[in-house]
Design a protein around this nucleic acid. Sequence first.
DNA 1: CCTTTACGTCAACCATGTTGACTTAATTTC
DNA 2: GAAATTAAGTCAACATGGTTGACGTAAAGG
Lengths: 163, 163
Amino acid sequence: MVDVKGMPNPLFLREEELRQAIEMMFFAYRDFTGGPDEVLAEIGLGRAHHRVIYFVGRHPGITVSELLAILQITKQSLSRVLGHLVEEAYIVSRTGEVDRRQRKLELTPKGVELEKRLTAIQRDRIAHAYRNAGAEAVRGFKQVLHGVIDAKDRRRFDISGGS
Amino acid sequence: MVDVKGMPNPLFLREEELRQAIEMMFFAYRDFTGGPDEVLAEIGLGRAHHRVIYFVGRHPGITVSELLAILQITKQSLSRVLGHLVEEAYIVSRTGEVDRRQRKLELTPKGVELEKRLTAIQRDRIAHAYRNAGAEAVRGFKQVLHGVIDAKDRRRFDISGGS
DNA sequence: CCTTTACGTCAACCATGTTGACTTAATTTC
DNA sequence: GAAATTAAGTCAACATGGTTGACGTAAAGG
């Protein structure tokens, strides 16, 4: 028999290791969204608006269907948020030229400004973490996070460690 | 002048790099919570219940205040969810022995069972990502995620790469 | 004794998700 | 060219889970 105290059950360690990851995901996401949430609250918007503004900014001309596929919410839910953002002139919606059933979404200058402000908060947090961890750690971070994402959405990311 | 085409603006690359991280955080968290959400919906519970069950399971005897500090929600909001979990016998609340104002929370066997079921889903997803990425990447993942978390909560995690 | 702390509770409200039913316009298919 | 499908919008009702504010009670601590 091996000394159980000196060399504890590797399955137990693995369980602890994995629980740590689960917990870090919770705390990291909580704090990652906390900053933008404060700014949004000041102007009467919520996290749902942020997500829409972010992805429209990231993919100008994105259609409503594409947005729904990313956000994985119902069109009724998106409609409320998106409608509000169009009313408040953060986003414009124009009819698609090739398929006139589609609505292509884009940020207005006002939308771009807000998007920048919100993204800057998250970008600075990530930049800080990246700087302190180093390039090797960043590669690992992306690799693991990539594996956490559903296979169907992995193609969105090139994590070959380019730069 | 350096050739701008051959060697693009490093600030632009950095911006892209950071946006990639922001986006991966969104997709990873979306998919990380998606599995448990489905199970919870079947039994009439939500993500808020999951969080409570998780942290009570992780820290048996945790007080209401401690839970509030972790979840960062109001006690009124917690009360609704926690009250329901106590009613449905997932959690028991007993008066603290040393400080009788406190309520110490614990999972019942029923609560343990649900916690295991939910955590298993997330654990398997992380385990899969860890296995595919390798030990070095896991270290990097933890280092970066650690840096994303607010300093006040970092002490919860030992990321020294122990095993 | 008085103050503070831990917890609970009532009430109202808001943001954001859901289902289901239905409409309109445009495209695609047979 | 008619029929089916698709993209998008809309109305309504409802659930979850957050918020603020006010107030109550019991225990602890100065």
